[in-house]
Design a protein around this nucleic acid. Structure first.
Lengths: 149, 149
DNA sequence: GTATTGCGTACCAAATCAGTACGAATTGGG
DNA sequence: CCCAATTCGTACTGATTTGGTACGCAATAC
């Protein structure tokens, strides 16, 4: 079970790359080259990030992208939400109305709590921390055996 | 962004239903009727759950399924993993080898930590708690406005 | 022995996702 | 004022995944 889509994963990589040099204007081609990702895909990602206000874009010749805010003020959850949409565990978490089972399903309220915990795990990490070597501990310890996540 | 697949969601519903009467043998058709889910899909889910050891199956006439363990000893994470496979945020979290970007990607170690936090959020809730009205609080407060999960 | 039920695999359709392409809008320089 | 560079926005396509179904095999009760 993969929680994040590839695009969301790429999006974090792109955003993290921009966080390395927050003041420099960088166009999509440059980011694509640096991250080894397809140019067209990076352009698409940056557009989505710009739409969400995570990065700011400058048009025209010599234009490019940069972070809209300091890296420490942008969470991973924000980047993911910019690309994949709202974070939610189940269909019902995002669109309550569309669930026809609500009346006889006793689990709904509990999903909301789990959902929140997951969201907080993602919100607890900022881009600033993603570029640092080993500096944060959201809820658990530092990973010691990466083989078994 | 929907974290859980529909099947995983259904799986939890099915498992929760069985948790309501742990001692009663119940066949797939009965579970499907009670949960309002397609019969064939429920059969598939129960099979997967049985394979993972979450429920135990009795074959033959008058056969059926029941929980393999007390509801309090089965976590939501287990049920989800039985259906969707290992829990992991990114491709790299599950299959480290397949990621060709590892060398120049500084974010990998951090994913493992976020990944673990998410896994713990799901592991912290048992089926026992899913059928109770409002008894647990994993990390945040009781949901008061379900519209915004 | 037969009917019932789960087991396992394979299969199909639909939805979603990843990636691409093209035209419109905007800015800087000649 | 015109042209080149670059982002913006939409639409499109191919591939992958997911949701759901069907069918034959194995096991158990009567």
């Amino acid at each position: 079970m993969i929680i994040l889509s590839k695009l969301a994963d790429y999006g974090v990589i792109v955003a993290t790359h921009l966080a390395l040099a927050p003041d420099r204007q960088e166009n999509a081609a440059s980011v694509a080259a640096a991250t080894r990702l397809p140019m067209a895909t990076v352009a698409k990602l940056l557009k989505a990030l710009a739409h969400a206000g995570v990065v700011s874009a400058t048009r025209g010749a010599a234009g490019g992208y940069r972070l809209a805010r300091p890296a420490a003020a942008i969470s991973v959850a924000e980047v993911v939400a910019a690309i994949d949409g709202d974070i939610g565990l189940t269909q019902c978490s995002v669109h309550v109305d569309e669930c026809a089972h609500t009346s006889y399903c006793p689990t709904r309220p509990h999903w909301a709590a789990i959902n929140r915990a997951v969201g907080e795990a993602l919100s607890a990490v900022t881009l600033d921390e993603m570029i640092s070597p080993y500096a944060f501990l959201p809820a658990a310890g530092v990973p010691q055996h990466p083989a078994h996540g």
